[in-house]
Nucleic acid binder design. Structure first.
Lengths: 342, 342
DNA sequence: TTGTATGCGTTATCAG
DNA sequence: CTGATAACGCATACAA
């Protein structure tokens, strides 16, 4: 079952390998007849060029890579669709790479850049507090998306597209306060989180402070490490714990929609209802929020627009070594039925 | 920003390239001192071997590929986790490939097999009515999972792991009938579906027939092509249409949990409730079914076990050109709160 | 224990 | 228009 190579094709056709190569790659100076013949033989023999050899040789493959951290994150599915479309439109090819939870996305990027001849990289998700030294190793333009950017990150190295997680989180807490809530619990990320989870928590604290509400540590619940991050399951466990603590609160802000849904289940199991007994708010704007009953009040992140901005920014950087833009999108508060005025 | 190659490392260390290669690949016969030195230089210079060159050269990389069709399918996330773990345990490496909706998964597999030196392939999802000729081109063992296998498929070529979609669908319809329902609507796949969608629909028809219930074509709703397959959105639109038709029914069987949730929303919007006015059943056993309110009665597919069986079967085939097993798992009916006795 | 040389499958650069 | 042939970066048989 040995693979057929370009040499085999050349031999069969009685031509040189370079002619076969020309036929395949639509080179201009080749006799149409020989080309047709070669292409026919290629098809007959199911010949497919070895991609590794191509990558090794080709000066420039016009491919851009999309690295996705957290394949299960439903937010990304929509972004990937957009990226696929736009990249194809620019006649680039796309290589989609899944990054394992344990893997470092920058390492993967560096590796991939050696392997394929990348022109640019889009990072989706992941935590981005990486060393200057590591970042320096990736030599093509890259843009970070939906990643929490801490203040001290070295922003000259790359572009980014995101929402202001502090501000959006704040927006939601403002809303809850405007609805009359003062005892607002939050289902936050892991205590050691340094990414969007931390930013959203900061937004929470800032807004409470602004309104003269003293934060109650008992109302801040951190994610369970042993459960999947941002999942319904985790939100359920967190809310369960919160309710069991007996601490008084009227609103619950979950930093993801999935956690919000999990929390709702915990509340229902406690014999309470949403929003009569507890108001619940989420974050992300997944279809889940809109289809759940009651619909979940949430912050919608404009994923499609963000994906478009990300890829456009990347192409700008590729075509002209432009400065690194940092585009910040505004989220949108979607009022559902899960929050009530008190 | 030119890449550093093995030659550079060799030059810097004052040794030959083969020595560097030996150092990296843990070859036995190499002086520990020179090895240490080489490894230090490698680290200092952030050298990473070019994977394309390795693939081109290496006789055997012990890698197995997992091809996933439909990245947004939440069922697969759990399977992939298992596959990652098991493949690592066998000291193989895993390459996870996303297959676009428009791409043919067999083509992708053939391509990938040329590029990397695959030892085996796991297909997750996708429609599998492929030509004998195409299948023949993939020369390593492969196993299909959670894919609707039609009767006439040539099963000698590959192994498979799945649930019996006809039977499981039938199981649910039996259950609904036992609960006193006779006017059972179904939210099915696209009318031209030839995969699991068709099988589940067959299970529905068979069971109705068995119980002497004449199928009512008005109660069979097909997926909207313009909306994502198996999504909440699609289920919502389908149920909306069904309700608007005015056709009488007491139970609604959606062939995916997400569609079931979408249907619930449509029912609620019509001013009705689940399960008082309409009973709703799903399929898949996602966490969504369990967290929705009411919890959705569904057929749970044992994804983890199926993934384990799939990879074990694959390794069996790799190690000993064994016969192609076709493992069929039983689903489990999970009773939720969305179906009532009438 | 180490270095040199060859080839993996392509593409690109040259002469014909 | 076409065909040798030299890279691409690495692993390995073989020679030292």
């Amino acid at each position: 079952m040995e693979s057929v190579t370009i040499k085999d094709i050349a031999r069969i056709c009685g031509v040189g390998v370079s002619t076969v190569s020309r036929a395949m790659n639509d080179h201009p100076d080749i006799n149409q007849e020989t080309k047709d013949k070669i292409m026919r033989v290629i098809r007959e023999h199911n010949y497919i060029p070895n991609n590794s050899a191509q990558n090794l040789k080709r000066a420039d493959a016009k491919t851009i890579a999309v690295l996705v951290k957290g394949i299960s994150n439903p937010l990304f599915a929509r972004m990937i669709k957009v990226l696929e479309r736009e990249i194809q439109k620019q006649h680039y090819s796309l290589v989609l790479q899944h990054v394992d939870d344990r893997q470092n996305e920058v390492d993967v990027a560096i590796q991939l850049e050696k392997e394929k001849r990348l022109r640019g990289i889009v990072f989706l998700g992941g935590y981005f507090s990486h060393s200057e030294e590591k970042l320096k190793q990736i030599s093509v333009p890259f843009v970070l998306s939906t990643i929490g950017l801490l203040e001290d990150a070295n922003k000259e190295k790359y572009a980014s597209v995101s929402v202001d997680d502090v501000r959006e989180s704040s927006r939601m807490v403002e809303y809850l306060i405007a609805k009359g809530h003062r005892d607002i619990a939050i289902l936050a990320a892991r205590e050691d989180d340094t990414s969007i989870g931390l930013l959203r928590l900061q937004g929470y604290y800032q807004t409470l402070k602004k309104h003269g509400i003293k934060p109650n540590p008992a109302l801040v619940v951190y994610m369970k490490e042993e459960l999947g991050p941002y999942t319904m399951e985790n939100g359920y466990a967190m809310a369960k714990e919160l309710l069991a603590s007996g601490e008084k609160f009227t609103a619950l802000f979950a930093i993801s929609d999935r956690m919000a849904v999990g929390a709702c289940k915990a509340i229902l199991e406690a014999g309470k209802t949403v929003p009569q007994d507890y108001s619940v708010a989420g974050f992300d704007g997944l279809d889940l929020a809109q289809f759940y009953n009651p619909t979940i009040t949430t912050i919608r992140q404009p994923m499609e627009e963000m994906a478009e901005a990300a890829i456009r920014t990347l192409f700008d950087m590729i075509e002209q070594e432009g400065k690194k833009k940092h585009v910040v999108f505004a989220g949108e508060l979607i009022e559902g039925q899960s929050v009530r005025q008190i």
